[in-house]
Structures are given as structure tokens and as C-alpha cells.
């Protein structure tokens, strides 16, 4: 589904990624963990072409994405739920979901409006509310629901638990797990590494722009160095 080889990205003069290679297979849910500033968000932005890469290959669905604009990448089914959710604050919940549908283009998807409402009932209850007035958790659900409307082949999630209470975080992760079980491929970036490793089958550890570890999530969760570096505290 996604193959990344030797990806280099410089961001504001800093070498943020220094040769990252990873792959995500269809139906997988993969975690990318690492400390603050490791380059996790930069990697997701590079995958959606929101930042330009310096070198390396990104092949999505068998196709190199070099040179595509971010909106064109989205329209191929690589949907990125950015950090901070970035909902369209002035528009209603329903309108946000409709905008989400733009990425679908002529493709088809199993994620209909009904499906999204079933997954996140609160979005249906508040469909006419201005999105900027939703709580943080509701906004995160909206951001995910909106990406689903775009018919994702691969969903990139950047820090979905950021700023959410444990209870709401549980709800969000439950939804993600359910989506994955239904067949959605997910690449998940999380600071909350333990949570991420619990939810996923495989994981990468990113440290200062390099992949330092990779393997089954359960294995990494048991790795002493990783526990000390990322799961400690």
C-alpha cells in the first residue's frame, strides 16, 4: 500500500528526516512513535506532500507521488488527519463532512455519511452546530469522520489523543480499532507510545530523523531500551 525509501526532508533549514524507509501493507494498523521533535509530523506531512521532500521515494498504491499537490495526493485516497485536527471552524459539522467528501472524486467508498454517524453518533446529534464550538474530542471525531468521507485507502493520523481526556482517548482509539478491523489501513503517529503500541500490530520508532527500531508492536512494547526511552515516565 505504502512504500517509503530513503526519505530526506529539510524543514526550515533543519534536516528533519535523514533517510527514512518504511512500509505499510493493506489492512495494517502501524504506529510511528518517537519523542518530541523526532520528525514524526514532518514524516506525515511529507507523505501527504504538504512539505516537499529533498530526496527519496514515496510509492502509494503502486504510484510515486512526487510532484503531486497535497490535494491530488488526498484525492488518491491518502488522507491525512493533521495534528491539531484543523477542522473548518466556521462551518457546521455537516458541512465539514461534506467538504471531506471532495477527496473522494470519482472513487467509491464504503464510508458513507450514515457510516460516519454510526461510528460517531455525536456528529449526527450536532450536525448543524458550528464546528469551532465542538469540544476537543468531538473535533477529533469530526476530523476522522471527515477524512473517512474522502474514501481513505490509507489514513494518516497525527496525535489523535493530543489534549483529550483518557475517557475520550479510549473512545477515539476504539473507533480506530474498529475501522482497522473493518479493513482500513492506518498509520498512526502518537506521543502516547504505550497507547499506540497497544492499538497497533506493528510499529516504527523514529529518533532525530532516523528509524531506530521497527517490529511487532507487542515486541517493541517489551523492549527495555524502548521502555526506557519512550514509555518510561
Amino acid at each position: 500500500m505504502l512504500n517509503v525509501k530513503d526519505l530526506h526532508v529539510s524543514y526550515k533549514g533543519i534536516k528533519a528526516l535523514r533517510g527514512v524507509s518504511l512500509h505499510v501493507e493493506e489492512g495494517e494498523m502501524v504506529a510511528l512513535i518517537g519523542s518530541n521533535g523526532a520528525g514524526k509530523s514532518t514524516l506525515l506531512n511529507a507523505l501527504s506532500n504538504a512539505v516537499r521532500r529533498k530526496a527519496g521515494e514515496i510509492v502509494f498504491g503502486g504510484r510515486e507521488t512526487r510532484g503531486l499537490n497535497p490535494h491530488a495526493v488526498a484525492r488518491q485516497g491518502l488522507l491525512h488527519v493533521p495534528e491539531g485536527r484543523q477542522i473548518l471552524a466556521d462551518m457546521s459539522v455537516y458541512e465539514n463532512l461534506l467538504v471531506g467528501q471532495i477527496a473522494l472524486g470519482r472513487r467509491t467508498t464504503r464510508y458513507t455519511l450514515d457510516h460516519v454517524y454510526e461510528l460517531f453518533p455525536v456528529l449526527e446529534e450536532r450536525r448543524d452546530q458550528i464546528a469551532g464550538t465542538l469540544s476537543g474530542g468531538q473535533q477529533q471525531m469530526l476530523a476522522i469522520g471527515r477524512a473517512l468521507m474522502g474514501g481513505p485507502e490509507l489514513l494518516l493520523l497525527d496525535e489523535p489523543s493530543l489534549g483529550l481526556s483518557p475517557l475520550i482517548t479510549d473512545q477515539v482509539f476504539d473507533a480506530l480499532t474498529r475501522l482497522n478491523e473493518e479493513g482500513l489501513t492506518v498509520l498512526l503517529v502518537e506521543q502516547n507510545a504505550l497507547r499506540a503500541l497497544e492499538a497497533t500490530s506493528r510499529a516504527y520508532v523514529l529518533d532525530r530523523g532516523l528509524i531506530t527500531h521497527e517490529g511487532p508492536s507487542a515486541e517493541l512494547a517489551g523492549d527495555q531500551t524502548i521502555i526506557e526511552s519512550y514509555l518510561g515516565a
Binding site: 504538504a50 488522507l79 488527519v81 484543523q86 462551518m91 467538504v99 471532495i102 471527515r146
Partner: peptide
């Protein structure tokens, strides 16, 4: 209209709109 929503999406948050497949240009 879909076009109009795209206009408003770009007005509200151009970056997010691009990640949703909206062609800002």
C-alpha cells in the same frame, strides 16, 4: 454547492482544505 464549500474551506483553513483534497489554486 460543493464549489462554494471549497471556497469557504480554503477561506477558513487553506492547509486543512488541501489535505481534504480541495484544490486551492
Amino acid at each position: 454547492t460543493t464549489f462554494g464549500r471549497q471556497v469557504r474551506a480554503v477561506a477558513t483553513n487553506e492547509r486543512a482544505a488541501a489535505l481534504l483534497g480541495v484544490n486551492a489554486q
